[in-house]
Amino acid sequence: MSDHKINPNNWIDLYSDYLFNYSISRVNDHAIAQDLISETFLAGLKSMKNFKGEASERTWLISILKRKIIDHYRKKNSKKGKAEVRMAYNSSENEGDWLEERVADPFDKTAEDNIENTELGFAINNCLEKLPEKQAKVFEMKTILNYETETICNELDITASNLWVIIHRARTAMAGCLEKNWF
């Protein structure tokens, strides 16, 4: 089975949004996520001859991105222990303030919301990853990027009724998958 072709010319248009969201739900930093996917595309280009066509381009690129994310955390971890925390509480002005400063702010509820949101993004990405490539692409363009039906039809060269069938299958699968993992 080697019916998957590789064509780097369209990579960025087709996969950059998907890879970006995939990495952002894992590294939680826009700039790092952008660097990671940029590296992923370049690495993919360099190892194109290793592409056997067993998996789709998207799956293949994701597997490269996964390595990049692991490398990123490895690098980050290797810096551990070198950091030094300095705190000076010897000025008479601040004396005795340190305890109060360390108490969690009860009004800061956004942290928890953010965690939940990140996890949801993670769950959505995971489910999206399980969909067949075309369904994932159409669903993403329509639901997450909010493209017009006509734009998607033109770009992917499908009819409107075609699009709704794909959307229907994708939505059913997504709802089922999220029901298992999130609802």
Binding site: D17, N21, H30, N117, T118, T143
Partner: peptide, 16 residues
């Protein structure tokens, strides 16, 4: 439910 869930998820953003 699915629509609401995805709408509520502000982390999911397209690449600038």
């Amino acid at each position: 439910k699915l629509t609401k869930l995805i709408k509520s998820n502000s982390v999911f953003t397209p690449l600038p």
